[in-house]
Design a binder for these strands. Structure first.
Lengths: 150, 150
DNA sequence: CTCTTCGTGTCAGCTTTCTGACACAGGTCA
DNA sequence: TGACCTGTGTCAGAAAGCTGACACGAAGAG
């Protein structure tokens, strides 16, 4: 193999992508035994924290398009994890809610995901963690602003 | 809209995913005019820094499977951006190299991507940047270790 | 030398996600 | 009131990525 310690890149962007990739893999690994994907879990978690979210809002929260979230929601609804009214109470927005089954399913997943997050933060002090939080928010803010301005 | 400042999640994992998503969008935006995707760019950049990488090594560096990288390489080869020997000089490994055309194409892309990275780091001190670097590496290391151990 | 293990390139099929497009609801403003 | 713009849900097609599987070469263990 050719894994000499070449410094590949000193780029923070590359490192961010790598971290995200490793995190995603770790989450997939613990969610697979539960028959759940990352987007699947994200959707349920969002609904638990903010009941009644619409399809589009869920999509934004899970960082996918509303079309993708829509197919996921249709599956979740068919399998009885979430409920959507047949008719929109106002406008076209269909507020989605967890069913008891969805809530139970989410509980197991939350435990699994939390263990991954704990593992990720191992070896970091409280100060470092809040520093990481602030730094990531700064990156997001800077990119979003520039994005709108460009 | 329903964008009250609900604290959605205090999770570093969520924030990491968000940052990665925003970064990806920003990169896609500046690469699209050049007819290039993020994976496409990653592949070329890796080859510039480490000429002769194999398909599998490129896949690992770009965080995709070798199968995905293989179809990308076939396209890049057909369009004249990279070259691979018809026969493996040793084993089955086909070392890939940039053509002059690939190098020219990469130069423009590098400028575009660097501008995104500069924008991302705007408002961060040198100290914060090196702190971010260390923190991200710590996360990656912790997740990788646990991954192997699990 | 033989066997086992590991990494590699590649074929096939499938899943997920995305882009493009349409009609409709609600708010704003003249 | 009517025009305009934004956000939404949804349909259809295409692109990108993944899993599973196979055969082959290299390297190490016995």
């Amino acid at each position: 193999m050719n894994q000499e310690g070449v410094d590949l890149e000193r780029s923070l962007g590359y490192l961010l992508k790598e971290a995200s990739s490793v995190l995603r893999s770790a989450m997939e690994e613990v969610l697979r035994p539960l028959g759940m994907s990352v987007t699947h879990y994200s959707c349920l978690e969002l609904l638990a924290q903010r009941p009644g979210l619409s399809n589009s809002e869920l999509a934004r929260g899970a960082f996918v398009t509303r079309q993708s979230m829509n197919v996921l929601l249709q599956n979740l609804e068919r399998e009885g994890y979430v409920t959507r009214p047949a008719e929109a109470p106002v406008g076209k927005v269909l507020p989605t809610r967890l069913t008891p089954r969805g809530r139970r399913s989410l509980e197991k997943a939350t435990v699994a995901v939390r263990s991954v997050e704990v593992r990720m933060l191992a070896g970091m002090t409280e100060t470092e963690q809040s520093g990481a939080f602030r730094i990531l928010q700064s990156m997001i803010h800077s990119l979003r602003d520039g994005n709108a301005g460009a």
